[in-house]
Design a protein around this nucleic acid. Sequence first.
DNA 1: CTGAAAGCGCTTACAG
DNA 2: CTGAAAGCGCTTACAG
Lengths: 343, 343
Amino acid sequence: MQKKERTPTIKDVAKRAGVSVATVSAVINRNRFVSSELVEKVFKAIQELGYHPNRIARGLKKRQSFNVVYIIPDITNPIFASVTRGIQDVMEKSCYDVSIYNTDFSDKKLFHQLTNVLENRPDGIILSAWHSPEIKRAISLIQQFNIPLVLVHAPRNVEGIDAIFVDDENGAFEAVNYLLRLGHRKVLSLGVKNSTTSSLREAGYRKAFKKMGLSIEEKLVLKSDSFAPQSACLSIYKALKSNINFTAVFAHSDSLAVGALEALNDRGIQVPEEVSVMGFDGTYSFCTLPRLSTMLIPNYEMGKKAAEILLKRIAGNSSGVIREEIKPRIVIQKSTQATQKKP
Amino acid sequence: MQKKERTPTIKDVAKRAGVSVATVSAVINRNRFVSSELVEKVFKAIQELGYHPNRIARGLKKRQSFNVVYIIPDITNPIFASVTRGIQDVMEKSCYDVSIYNTDFSDKKLFHQLTNVLENRPDGIILSAWHSPEIKRAISLIQQFNIPLVLVHAPRNVEGIDAIFVDDENGAFEAVNYLLRLGHRKVLSLGVKNSTTSSLREAGYRKAFKKMGLSIEEKLVLKSDSFAPQSACLSIYKALKSNINFTAVFAHSDSLAVGALEALNDRGIQVPEEVSVMGFDGTYSFCTLPRLSTMLIPNYEMGKKAAEILLKRIAGNSSGVIREEIKPRIVIQKSTQATQKKP
DNA sequence: CTGAAAGCGCTTACAG
DNA sequence: CTGAAAGCGCTTACAG
């Protein structure tokens, strides 16, 4: 075990190099001219001591922590993992590190985390908390600290804050429209109770029917208890039991689609020959059999974009509020096909 | 826009409460007695000002940052996302936040990140960099800073550091043993080139055969270019083309198994009726059809355990080096069955 | 029981 | 071109 040796400080470097700390600081930050002679001495001392500047101290003085925070429901959800990666990749280039806080969709946890977060004085915050009934309170708390904030997956009714969201309604519209063009008319809408995201996707479903001048059979509009595959399974079993007729499923997420595939497979119904299945988000479309057609959400890019906006705000850019609407992209794979003409 | 108003400091609170900063500090940290009269005044001032202590400053003085770092290849990989969550959940309880750094399996990135990390003086580091040829250099760099370190997924030959790893060899042994007991003899080993993890799993495969007194057909030992499903697909196609006979596949990861399922499905080979497929890790076993039998790795628990060890070290516990070997657990689902007796 | 003061490791006017 | 000194917002001996 080593002794409790302090790591070297700027003072140690200054002493060893025979210069002032101001000079050391200057050579490290290249923010004022230093004669090449001294520069060399300083570098030598840094080398010899294995000196690494202490950013905590630097941050205290400069009122900058070089840390940004991303608050999400759960890092284990591939959607947020991808957004996180996008954020990290752009933040890293500007020498910021990013801390992740999970809320598990709980308001209590959200505020608990927020208290911690604020004590750390991050230089910026990115928040994915669209589901929170208290999001406005969270936002104003952050604003009290004058910390730049950008929302990812924001609710539509929050204004005045930079935000970037998925165009769920139009994405769903496009997905369902695609199914309708394939000739499907009995299209299940497989959504989730009490989910704003799911209700937007349902709105798109309705819009697509409407546009084609078709009426909607309400019994085709299903709502599972959660986004978990098992929930979707149960919904499909129930629909089959009730003899509800359908030739296609529009699942409001890939996870729901996974459940649908499993239920259909279990009942010996062929996908896509008998029933087409369409997913939404693209998280699992690579690992299902048959490969899922889906509306791909570019989560990584969303993260990058959010980070870029945040960086601008941190740099002091105070131009008008930015709201960016991301369009999901349709990806057609093996789980959908045109309706079979009955002979 | 608000003016560039400073957030209130301990001084502001002291002034407003009519006490010294020492007293304010004492009531916040409850570390020395303060008369209830003053306590009340202080709380009142804190309330009125909306004061939140600045942890950066606190950290500078106490030489503690309340930040720990987890360095991983990629947060987008569900394995690391789960470990991360485990770490966060225990760290959060002790008021630490955790920053994530991605290395993309690159040594260059690893050291780049490490430099940043060290400048932030985290209170502890957890490192998943088993693949790095330079891991020992990374470790000694960290040790120079006297920062507690625990390794997750460590290589076996690194000693003297707390580490927690997966018992790959015995896990694979158990998986293959299970297939052998089902009557399979022609078992493909579907691994990956230049992967230490995969070679440990291959060793387990060999051990299982050996123990049963069976010899190994080397042509059954496949090595894909990567862990991506597509790579596995190609390997399986190649095996089929070469008329290699097999009744089971032992995939060294679930992602490889996903590729195998796809290739087999594509060639009209029934799983599990004609070929059984066994995965490893459990990341995708919930979304495949048929559901994959696999060796589940408890990543979340590994993260928790790593964090708990780290916390102990941060608290100054200097008892002997801890090495923990995590055993994967067999999960039997639908992708495996006993060999069909040929009539 | 409480306050004045030094100091954590930096940056940055201010002199010279 | 470079250094001495003040200060970022806390904590903590040291007095009293």
